[in-house]
Design a protein around this nucleic acid. Structure first.
Lengths: 106, 106
DNA sequence: CTGGAATGTAAGCCCTGACTTACGGTAAGT
DNA sequence: ACTTACCGTAAGTCAGGGCTTACATTCCAG
């Protein structure tokens, strides 16, 4: 049950933008920082949060660290939402049934 | 593209707990507030955020408001994560391919 | 129509977290 | 070995959001 960290990580718009940037291709921190109006350390801190949530991962290439999307955290979040989706549909179905049938409890 | 609001809404642990409580069955605000160690107005504020994100919806029953899960926001978030999942798998496949083949670019 | 129950809203406090600058550490180049 | 590039970490600042109390609103009961 680690989807909580992933949700916190993706709640920040800057971190979502970082994820969006990594959708195209893996990128080192410096290049990534160049795409945003904030400092490089701030990007590093965001990458730390995203990494802890299992949403991104880094591959070392000399002194550089190439970050890429990681299926780990994304998959966990996806599985959680799938079950939540099922429950939401059941609630919706009961609602529709109650309205058409006029049956308040069963 | 309203999954941003949903992510912000679900980033709070109390709001996630409210969603979990609503998975069992729709509940009025008062009953819902009884399950948490915070005040009732705080619950109302959380429900407001969840409602704006399309994660929950309310049905009026007299002076009560019965809240339930709503497929709207959950579905939007699910669709976004599906596409992100695909891109993450592609990145992972390229990574594995590069390692086994030793081909750094193509 | 008056009383009370159930809920949303307003104003204010306080703490978490996002950002900055400064610094430390590691790897490549000469 | 020295320098330079690239990156993570530490400490401090400041705005945003979650919580509370107080108030406004709506609906049913009598």
């Amino acid at each position: 049950m680690s989807y909580g960290e992933a949700l916190v990580a993706l709640s920040d718009p800057t971190r979502r933008a970082i994820v969006e940037a990594l959708r195209d291709e893996p990128q080192p921190v410096g290049v990534l920082a160049g795409r945003f109006p904030i400092s490089r350390p701030a990007i590093s801190q965001h990458l730390r949060v995203l990494s802890d949530a299992g949403l991104v991962a880094a591959d070392r290439a000399g002194t550089r660290r190439i970050y890429r999307l990681s299926p780990e955290g994304i998959g966990a979040l996806r599985r959680y939402l799938d079950t939540l989706w099922d429950d939401a549909l059941q609630a919706y179905a009961r609602e529709a049934h109650a309205l058409t049938e006029g049956d308040p409890d069963a």
